[in-house]
Amino acid sequence: MSPSSTRPPPGADLVDSLERIARGAGVTSQQPRRLDPAPVLPAIPARVGSALSDVPSS
């Protein structure tokens, strides 16, 4: 029995070769990106401060 040829059909070689060798032409790493939801900062309510001044007037 003679060895069989491993050669694919005519034309298929070229296509395979081109696809492999020219793989990625024009394909970029650009990806659509979106922001994660923004963290909610706490509201700042009215700011109140007090201090004692217990100085009698007499």
Binding site: L41, A43, V48, S50, A51, L52, S53
Partner: peptide, 19 residues
């Protein structure tokens, strides 16, 4: 009375604080 001085400043408007 309690002899305290109490100062109060308004809170930050939501439009100035929220996203």
């Amino acid at each position: 009375e309690d002899h305290k001085l109490v100062v109060t400043f308004p809170g930050v408007e939501a439009v100035e604080r929220n996203l």
